[in-house]
Amino acid sequence: MNLFEHVGKFSRFLLLVLSKPEKGKLFFSQIVKEIHKLGINSIGIVVIISLFMGAVISLQTAYNMLNPLLPDYLVGYTTRESMLLEFSSTIVGLILAGKVGSNIASEIGSMRVTEQIDALEIMGINSANHLILPKIVAAIFINPFLYVLSVFVGILGGLSAGYLTGTVPISEFIYGIQYGFIPYYITYSLIKTVVFAFIITAVPSYYGYYVKGGALEVGKASTKAVVNSSILILLANVILTQILLK
């Protein structure tokens, strides 16, 4: 299939997904389940990565400031800006595309090859809507919280690294965190996070939903899902940055 065919098929797929759920109550309980699966279960990896990246950004900035006239608080400033603008939205998005994306593609894909999706259809249920909409809604809801968590933990990592290695005093770092703060950057990043949340759930669902064959094909679909949702995240990042920061 070429790109245009994929776009057409993906649009039709979205029409199926974005229809009204059969039973409101059931839909709600599924969202709660998905929030747990996609969000709560990702807290660990988000915390670990953000902590270490915050630490590294802070140390790299400190060791690269050879000019003694540059104030120490710039380390805090740089750490905050890096986490806030790019790391906690885009890089966390890419990491979740790997973790959550492969999970979704293989879950939906194996439901397809074991005829569980057919079983839903024969009951008269819109399977795409039933299985996938809760995932999209859950990720759009929970990922902004992961973003905020990542920013906090990253800054904490930077602060601790600076303090523990004796490169930046805590007070300087904290001053830097508050220095030249532009609240709009948070809005910008949250918008990105929400768009990425959609990509991370919808694209792998698409690859899983149309799997044909068996376990081998499910594996292949899962790889494709991760690669293509990562590319889409990078592409969306450029486009959104151009639109929102112009």
Binding site: M111, T114, Q116, D118, A119, I122, M123, G124
Partner: peptide, 19 residues
Amino acid sequence: KKEIRKEMGMVFQGGALFD
């Protein structure tokens, strides 16, 4: 079709139980 589907039951080859 949906109305008639509510009158159908299907046992798939592998069972197709929801994992």
